[in-house]
Structure formats: C-alpha cells, structure tokens
Nucleic acid binder design. Structure first.
Lengths: 116, 116
DNA sequence: TGCCTACATATAGAGAGCCTACATGTAGAC
DNA sequence: GTCTACATGTAGGCTCTCTATATGTAGGCA
C-alpha cells in the first residue's frame, strides 16, 4: 500500500495534477489529498514534489494561481487554463498509447485489457 | 513513430528488457530490434540506454551474459537468471498495479466504453 | 500558558536513469 | 575503397522526483 515506485511516476505527474484540477480549482495541500483519495490511498506524493511541479505547470501556462485566504490561512489556489485543459486531453491519449506500448512488450499475449 | 516520452519510460525499462529475454537469450542489438518489433515500431530505445541498462541488470543478478561469435562478429548475449525470472513476474504485477493507480486518477470512473 | 497536531507553502540538494553524442570496430555489397 | 548494416560501449548532461528542512497559522487540550 502506498507503494508506487517514484521512478515510475516520472512523466506522469503532470497528467495527475492536471486531472485532479479538471473540475475544480484546488490548492497544493488539497491536491495531495485528492491524489491520495482518488488512488485509494496508493499515491502519497510528498510536498517537495507537488509544489515545484505546480509552479512548473504554471510557468508553462497549463495552470494559473491566486492567493486565497480561508479561515486565516493563506492558500495558493490553482486552476486549469485553456491550454492546460488541452494538455490534459493530450496527457490522457499519451497515457493510453503508453500503456498499450509497454503492455504489448511486457505482456505480449494480452492484446488489450485493463483489469485482471 | 518512435513516440514514447523518454521520461515516461523511467522505471519501466527493466521490465521491458527482462520481458524480451523471457523465452530466448539475445544480444543488445537484437534486444533493441525486438523492442521495436514488439511495440509495433513505437519503441526506439537508443544504444546509450540499452547497453548500460543491461550491464546494470547483470550487476544486480537478473541477467547473465557471455560472448558469442557469429559470422566473425562478437556479440554479448544476455539471458535471464532465476532471480531475473522472478523479478520479471514482479515487474508485471507492479505494472498492473501502476496502471490501475494512474488510470484511476487520470481517467476516473471510466472502466469501459471507448469514446473518441 | 504551553504543547501538540493538522493545515499550508516553499526551497536546497541528492539521486537515478534515460538521452545525446561520440568512439570503435567488423562484414558484405557495389 | 566507400558505404551501409551490424555491434558494443562510455562520458556527460538533463530533468524530475525525493528527502530534509524551514516557516508560519489555527485550534484542541491540559
């Protein structure tokens, strides 16, 4: 449990972050919780990964952020931009292609398949 | 063609290499071709990735190698060891878990159906 | 009052592995 | 003799993720 190999996460973090922001803006801390919840507890992404990644995604224009104060606490709330939304679509089709490619090599007999 | 994001490959290379060696020993160059063939041309893994990776896998005991001369050409031929075979099993179940986790976050509640 | 936990953001530095680019060499075709 | 395919290998760079640390607020509780 909680056991996703960090190396394997490489290159998929962006899609995960964009995905949890698809329907509502969230701040970093809430994003981490959302990832954990959506994955059934399997994803525990440390703050040192998430905060820099969010800034990077904002820098390239996929996200936009603003400071919001709630109950005396300051939160930097991120939302998807238009290009971010397009990028999310791209991440999803890339993901499907990726799983097909790796799957075809790793488990040659299985042409398709998602669940056991 | 050749369109798998290098970053995404991180942490999956081992499984791919072990997998193509499952049923027969191969040398590095042939492994690269096998990866390309099995993936339908999508995987073009450069020599600078494969050769060091094979050495690493040998160092940790998943592979064993020997020099073979064929038609005047020297090949270092790799084969799976016993632990390598076990590791391959591990890589496969890790892969299934990984796709489930990422998939659950990236494409929530879409288990079937296939809309464009 | 002081302490602890949960909430919340951020950065520095390390680590690892995949890539580009280059170096080296043989065999066979033309 | 030159070119392509075959074949292996290393050096150095890049980038992302992680660990560890720093900072600060709010609320419960003894």
């Amino acid at each position: 449990m909680g056991g996703v190999n960090p190396d394997a996460l490489r290159g998929h973090m962006d899609g995960l972050l964009l995905s949890v922001l698809e329907h509502e803006p969230l701040h970093g801390y809430a994003i981490i919780e959302a990832l954990q919840e959506r994955s059934g507890g399997a994803l525990s992404v440390p703050t040192g990964t998430v905060y820099p990644a969010l800034r990077r995604l904002e820098r390239v224009g996929y996200l936009a952020s603003e400071w919001v104060t709630v109950g005396g606490r300051k939160r930097r709330t991120y939302r998807l931009t238009g290009t971010g939304r397009k990028q999310l679509e791209g991440e999803r089709s890339t993901w499907r292609a990726f799983t097909n490619v790796i799957g075809s090599v790793l488990e040659p007999r299985r042409t398709e398949g998602h669940s056991p």
